[in-house]
Structures are given as C-alpha cells and as structure tokens.
Write a protein that binds this DNA or RNA. Structure first.
Length: 906
DNA sequence: CTGCACCGA
DNA sequence: ACGATTCGGTGCAGA
C-alpha cells in the first residue's frame, strides 16, 4: 500500500479555528482559541488518516511576490487581529514540542509550499491529504491529492473532501480550470480582485462554456450580456493579474525531510506541559494515554513502607529535618452520611532524599481471619497511632511543612496554628485565581515545568480507596508525587508570591484563614429537620394547586419546569405576545414574565409556581439532604474558587439562603443554635461603598459617610441638588442604584435596566454622580488604565486578579474586562477585610477560651453561635474586631443582632 | 454536560 | 447597530 502524507495549511487552519472557536484564554492572559481549534482539527485528521508523514506549512511574514503584486494593486491586507497574532508563535511552539515538521520559507506562501510538496509526494507515489480552510487549494486536487476543508458548525468539525472528481462535481470545472474560475470571480478572503461584475454564477457559466480564460477572451464578443462583456474587456489586465495571484506554484525548490516528518512521537512531555499551560484540559487525556510511548517522566526516589513501625520511625527521623513535604489522602468513610474524612494513606517527602508512602490498613487482608470487631478496632487503633505521630511531627518547632490542601488534613495534623504550613494549593490560587482547579500535577507543570501523572489518568473514576486495593503502587506513586511536588514547589511559589507582593497575604491572611474555615466547617450549624419537612409540605400543597390551575388555564398538561415546553405553551399554544429570545427557544426569564403578569393570570401563577418549586427543591429538600448524623449541616467553605478573593460555600451553599422574600426568608428559622446558645449575626454596612470611598479618597463621599446618615439619601441629595430632608423616595432609590452600579463597574445600559429608565437618563445620572464625586471617577478610570497596563488589578492588601479580556479587540469582551477592573479591587478588598475580621474574631474566641463559635460567613456577614452567658463579651469581640479589621478613611460600621434562630438574628 | 432559571452578597 | 452591572451555587430539562 502506498504511503500517506498529510499537509496542513498552518495559517489558514489557525484562522478558521480562530473564528470558529469562542474566545478562550489561559491564566496568563494569552488567547488560546485558535491553537485549541487547530489541535482539535489536526487530531481529528490524524485519527481518520493515520498518515505516515505530517507537515505544517506557514507563511513567512515578509511580503512575498504575490503579496507585492497585490499590494501594488490595492493597499495592504487587513491586519490580523492581535488575539490571533499572538497565538501564531505559540502554535509553532506547540508543533515543535510535538516534533511536527514546520515548513516555512521567505518568499514563499504556504500555498506554494503545500502545492509543491503535494505534487512531489504524488509523483513519488504517495497519497496526499492537504488540509486547508482555503478553497484556493482545490486547484491542486488530483486522484491522489485530496483537499480537505474543515468547517466548524456549532462546535462540531465537519470536513469536506475534494478529489479532482469532487471539484468537478461541485464546480463543474477541473481543478486546473478552478484557477481561472477564481481569477474571474475573485476572492476577497484571498485578496484576489477578480473581474468586476463577474460573480460565482457568471464565472462558472463562462468556464463551463468556454473552458479557459484564453478561450473566453477569444470569444469575448459572443458574450451576450453587455455589462459582463464590457467589464471583461475593460479589465482584462485584472483577469490576468488575478490568474497569477490565484495560481499556486508547484515547482518551488524545497524538499520535505521524510525522516523528520514521520507522523509519530507527538506526545512529548514538552508538548504536554505546553498544553497544560494553555489549559487544554480536553487534550491532556490524549497525552496521558500515549505517555507510555514517550515515557520520560522523572523517576524520583519513592518508596512504599509496608510496616507501621517503619513508618513511625520514618516520621520520627523526619522531625530533624528543616523542611518536608507531606500529603495525606483522606476520603469520607464509606456509607456514612458524615463528611468526616478518613485517613487512608500518607506520604512524606524529605528534600534531596526520599519520599515514602504508607497506607493505613483499611481493607481486609487476603485470607485474614479477623472478626469484624477486631478489624475495626485495629483500624481505629492504627489511625489513632498514626495520627498521633503525624501531629507530633507537625508540631515540631522550626520544621516547615509544605503540603497541598491543608484544610482537608487538619484532622490529622497539629492545628493549633498555621505557621509551620505552606499550602501550595492556596499559593497557586493567589498567584492565579482564575483557574478552575488546582491539583498537584497542574501546579507541578505550571510552576516546576515538569509533567507528572494526572489524577484522572491514575484514578479514572475510581476512588482512592479502590485504587489502593487494585493498584497499590499507582496509589502510592500518586501520593508521593503530591508530597514531593509540595516541597519542591514551596520555594518557587514563595518567591513568586514575594515578587508579586503577596507574601503577607499568604502567610498572615490565607493560611490562618484555612484553619478558621476548617473549624467553621467542622462546627457546622444545627438545622431543625422536622421544621424543614413541614415547611416543604406546606409548599407542596400550594405547588399542586398552582400546577393544576396552570394546566387548566393553558388547556394542556405540560412540564412547567421545562423552559422549552413553557415557552411553547405560552407563546405558541396560547399566543401570548412576548416574542423570542435565546438560541434555544423563547425566554421565560422572570423579567420577561413579569411584564406579562399584569395581563395574564397564568403568568402570575407560573411565577409563583417557580418561586415555590425553587424553595422546595433547592432549600427544603436540598438542605434536608445535607443534615448529618449530628443534626447539623457542615457546608464546605472553599478558599480557592473565586476570582476576586471571596470565599464560596458548597454542599450545600449556605451563602444564598433566601432573604428578600418573606416566604423564603422563613427558611432561616430552621437554622438554630444548640441548647444554651443563641445566634449573633453581624454584617458590614455597605462595606464595598466604604472601600470605594477610602480607595478613591473622594472627599465628598468620605464626608457623606462622616455624617453618619443614610448614605443613599445623602448621595441623592448631592446628585440631585436637593436638600437632604426633601429627597424623595424615588431619588433615593435611584441614587442607591447608582451607588451599587459604580461598585459593579457600571454601564448606562445596565443602570437603565435596573431602574427601568432610558439609557440616556441613566447616562445622565452617572454623569451627575461623577460630578458629585469627582475622585470616584478618577479612581475607576485609573483602575481600568492600570489594569490595562499591568494586566491585572490589585486589592488594598495586594491580592491580584488578572484580566486577560482587557486586551481583546472584541468590544464585548473588552467592556467586560473594564467592568471587572472596576469591580475586582473593590469586591476583593471587601473580601480581604472580612477575612481579617474572621481571623481576629476566631483568635479572640480561642484565646479567651470561650465556648462561642464562628460558624458561618456570608460575604459581609458573620454568624456566631454564642453561649448565652458569653453574649456581652462576644458582642464586644465581634464589634471591635469587625470594625478594626481595616483602617479606612471612613469607619467600618456593622449591624448586629441576636436571636433564637437565623431569621431573628439577621 | 450545557443552558436556563433563580437564590444570595 | 450591536453589546449591555460583579461574584458565586444548585436544580432541572434535554441533549
């Protein structure tokens, strides 16, 4: 069988990919969509063709002969967008890393390179596939040269294939005639002028009838249509120029080195690392699968310790080190409804020496004769013994411990403080808060530039527990890597934090906070299960009524929860005017429905139904599922999720319990303190606006806060030049909306939507606002300008947020970046402040050995389960520490309440 | 697995 | 002419 060569038109495919794939960028702010699309297309082709050889051709940027001819004719080519231009060198880097031959030569266009190589290969008896987005290449097609044109349709890549016969079928001309067809009709994308007035249809008809350009001009007088005839005659020179432009050279002096172009060995560690850096998660699996073939992974000194005694001895010796890496693998106990993490394995890495792994005896040894009781007892004893040793190790003064995700491990470590720990998860997050997930392997790749096995590759969908029994060695190796990478990364990450000015943020804020959050999670919050149940039952009764009424009014039974069905019923079956939106059908969003609710009772019922089913599923049922054996909900506070530095809460999310509507708000009654305790809840009063006042230094805004009056009313008074006492409710509402808008990164459109006013009016409000607070305007302008210069924003405490969108040429993307640049420093600083407050409050409670506990944080609010007898002192602690968390030009004020449940305390 | 809808700050 | 306020999480439907 003949051999197969795949040739790829680099720029053309990159171009296609750029416009076909939505904008992506990695954490460095590098746009990556074209590279991603290119690789996807290339892999698809490789899989289909399984070629023997592969090469990619690029244009060199120096102008070529054909360019010059064209430029002489008409100006310059339109420039490549910046987002694409920056991807070209990276693309080449990726290809080089994959050992793929890149052909480029000054003076030659990619087309000419491709044409020449294709023809040569054909003569040598090969089958050639030429991949390009450019139909120009169709002239090269023969029975052995297939032109493949990828199209991206709705995320799927489809490829049109053209042999010579297919060109004939599609265009009624041979590939050679195709050149002249192009010359006649022109092609703006390829900068071929063509003959004016001759389009695709006319050109095709002419070519079919006369067969060639020469023949057309020989019979030009016979052409019946006057305008066409005259244009042809008048622009004969253009036709000839176009032909020259359209003709691809196939006789260039170049040679493909087939040895180097062998289609194999793509999956190199360098390429893998690059793909990691570019954050092509979908592609990584491909590398991992093929990694065995190019296995160059580092072989470190890893060892499994089987005997408990030996492991304990190792831990003892480790105490003498200055620094170790430590990683404990924990998983929730099987079949329990608690989140208590069970210790399964531990790895300790001694720098420049060895890394050991020890697995706790969790599963029955083969042939074991132990009774269940004995087995459990042994496990418990062993866990206690190992835990004690780990705690001893981790409390050694002067021993630095690098680890990954310390919050999950405090159960088994000394957690009287955090000074000894360095969490690479948190460090990686601070350096780069935009990433979706941080695992040891991606940190290793990004910060150490090495490729280690990924969790997905090792585990698949298996739990650690399963892996440990099935492939003990792999489990051990994975854990060892975690400890090894942690300690290896520590200095690198610390240096990067230092350079970025985030060292104190790391050591004095985030590390201590990890312990505060651990305690809060462990503490949990009591929930009255029966109350929650009856709340749900009450909802069901009303939901069923509404469901019946809605079906009745619609005349059909349908799923009200399906936006698709609902849209069809409302806007088609019932013919309610309200129009289309969204790509998937009619919009049934609340703001659309609200406009209709006055006229259509069914819409009102639907809105009520929506609200109630939301309460039922997300809150009544949703929360009930998270109540653990101790009668409490232990939410997870995540420290490394948000781009701005806020904490997030999951499983369940306790930061979005209903508040605004009375019915929903009642859910808060099921959150209760334990016996002998009450809830004390304090929230910051407009913390973001106060941060804005401080950071901008605007005297007017600062002065407004010094008056200790309703800030929105003062703003209204200043903005609308109305005496304070005469400010109307409407004026106040508008001023409040602008205040919020400023914090969010305002646009006049957004404000107009918010206030249901015209864009023009909204713009006017904003202008007046800026006149009132001129330094606020200066400040947010400066935020955007600085962010554009530096590529990131900063909070008062040095927390960074990169904003890659600011360099986009796409208006929407860029505007988004600008709003983010205004919002992130404000929201982020507020987040920093409450984190400081949390740490101070937590410390105070601890130092005074109080029984009261910090249990929840809701962005600007702290909830303390307060022992009744400690109320006065806790009130002082909370007030004092929240107010003094930051020293601003305005005071930090709080609203504090106590109550027998969360409803009352808020 | 994605889009929609909707809850909070 | 168009776009069109930030940060999150969860549940559901429908592919």
């Amino acid at each position: 069988m003949s051999q197969k060569l795949v040739l790829i038109d680099g720029h053309s495919i990159l171009n296609r990919a750029f416009y076909g794939v939505p904008d992506l960028s990695n954490a460095e702010g590098l746009h990556t969509n074209a590279i991603y699309g290119f690789l996807n297309i290339m892999f698809k082709i490789l899989e289909e063709e399984k070629p023997d050889y592969l090469a990619v051709a690029f244009d060199v940027h120096a102008p070529t002969f054909r360019h010059q001819m064209y430029q002489a004719y008409k100006g310059t080519r339109k420039p490549m967008p910046e987002e694409l231009r920056q991807q070209v060198p990276v693309m080449k880097e990726v290809l080089k890393a994959m050992h793929i031959t890149i052909m480029e030569q000054a003076g030659l266009e990619a087309d000419d390179i491709l044409g020449t190589l294709a023809k040569k290969a054909e003569q040598e008896g090969m089958e050639v596939s030429l991949v390009s987005g450019d139909r120009d290449l169709l002239q090269i097609a023969t029975d052995h040269i297939k032109i493949r044109i990828p199209k991206t349709k709705q995320g799927r890549t489809e490829i049109e294939d053209y042999y010579a016969a297919d060109v004939q079928a599609a265009y009624q001309v041979t590939p050679l005639q195709f050149i002249e067809l192009k010359a006649l009709m022109g092609d703006t994308a390829d900068n071929i002028p063509g003959v004016p007035k001759v389009g695709e249809k006319t050109a095709q008809a002419l070519m079919v009838e006369y067969g060639s350009l020469d023949n057309i001009y020989s019979h030009v007088e016979e052409i019946s249509k006057k305008s066409i005839r005259e244009s042809l005659i008048e622009h004969k020179d253009l036709a000839e120029l176009s032909k020259t432009l359209a003709t691809i050279k196939t006789d260039c002096d170049l040679q493909l080195d087939y040895d180097q172009a062998k289609a194999e060995g793509f999956y190199t560690p360098e390429a893998y690392t690059l793909c990691k850096r570019l954050e092509f998660k979908n592609l990584l699996g491909r590398f991992e699968k093929n990694a065995a073939a190019t296995d160059t992974k580092i072989t470190e000194n890893f060892r499994i310790i089987e005997e408990k005694k030996e492991f304990l001895d190792f831990l003892k010796k480790a105490k003498k080190q200055k620094e170790i890496g430590l990683w404990l693998i924990t998983e929730p106990a099987v079949g329990s409804n608690t989140k208590k993490e069970e210790l399964l394995g531990a790895s300790v890495s001694v720098p420049d020496a060895e890394t050991v792994f020890y697995a706790l005896k969790r599963e029955q040894e083969p042939g074991g004769q132990l009774s269940l009781f004995e087995e459990v007892k042994q496990t418990v004893d062993e866990t206690a013994e190992i835990t004690a040793a780990l705690q001893e190790l981790s409390s050694v003064k002067g021993l630095r411990i690098a680890t990954f995700d310390v919050k999950r491990q405090y159960d088994y470590l000394d957690h009287s403080g955090t000074e000894q720990y360095f969490d690479i998860l948190i460090a990686a997050y601070l350096l780069n808060p935009l990433k979706n997930d941080y695992d040891p392997e991606s940190i290793a790749s990004e910060h150490l530039g090495i490729m280690i096995q990924g969790k997905a590759e090792v585990f698949g969908k298996r739990s650690f527990r399963t892996l440990l029994s099935e492939e003990r060695k792999k489990a051990a190796e994975y854990t060892c890597y975690g400890a090894w990478v942690s300690v290896k990364c520590r200095k690198v990450l610390e240096d990067k934090l230092e350079v970025a000015g985030m060292k104190r943020l790391m050591n004095e804020m985030e590390m201590p906070l990890s312990l505060v959050l651990y305690d809060m999670q462990k503490e949990g919050v009591a929930v009255r299960r029966e109350e929650l149940k009856s709340y749900g039952d009450a909802l069901v009764a009303r939901i069923e009524e509404l469901e019946h009424a809605i079906h009745e009014q619609a005349g059909v039974d349908f799923n009200i929860n399906s936006p698709k069905q609902l849209g069809e019923v409302l806007f088609e079956t019932m013919q309610i005017p309200g129009g289309k939106k969204t790509k998937t059908g009619y919009s049934t969003a609340a703001d659309v429905l609200e406009k209709l609710s006055a006229d259509y009772p069914i819409v009102r019922d639907i809105l009520e139904y929506r609200g109630l089913t939301k309460l039922k599923s997300t809150y009544a049922d949703g929360l009930a599922a998270f109540i653990e054996a101790d009668g409490r909900i232990h939410t997870n506070f995540n420290q490394t999720i948000t781009a701005t530095g806020r904490i997030s809460s999951t499983e369940p999310n306790l930061q979005n319990i209903p508040m605004r509507m009375e019915l929903g708000r009642k859910i808060r009654k099921v959150f209760v303190p334990r016996e002998g305790y009450e809830f004390m809840d304090a929230d910051y009063s407009q913390i973001e606006l106060r941060v804005l006042a401080h950071m901008s230094g605007d005297e007017q805004l600062i002065d407004a806060y010094r008056q200790e009056e309703d800030i929105h009313r003062i703003t209204a008074s200043k903005v609308f030049h109305t005496p304070f006492e005469e400010v109307t409710d409407l004026q106040r509402r508008n001023a409040k909306a602008v205040n919020f808008g400023i914090v969010y990164g305002i646009s006049s459109f957004g404000l107009s939507q918010d206030l249901s006013i015209s864009k023009k009016e909204a713009a006017q409000y904003i202008e007046q606002y800026f006149e009132t607070y001129p330094k606020v305007k200066e400040f947010i302008d400066k935020l955007v300008a600085d962010a554009k210069n530096k590529g990131y924003t900063e909070t008062m405490f040095g927390r960074r947020r990169p904003i890659p969108e600011l360099s986009s040429s796409n208006f929407m993307q860029r505007s988004f970046g600008e709003r983010v640049a205004m919002n992130a420093p404000i929201q982020g600083t507020a987040a920093d402040i409450i984190k400081i407050a949390m740490i101070k409050v937590w410390k105070a409670l601890k130092e005074e050995e109080l029984k009261s506990r910090l249990i929840l944080q809701v962005h600007d609010e702290l909830l303390i389960e307060t022992a009744l007898e400690e109320e006065a002192r806790v009130r002082e602690i909370l007030t004092e520490n929240m107010k003094s968390a930051a020293d601003l030009a305005v005071t930090l004020e709080i609203d504090l309440h106590t109550g027998k449940d969360w409803y009352e305390a808020k």
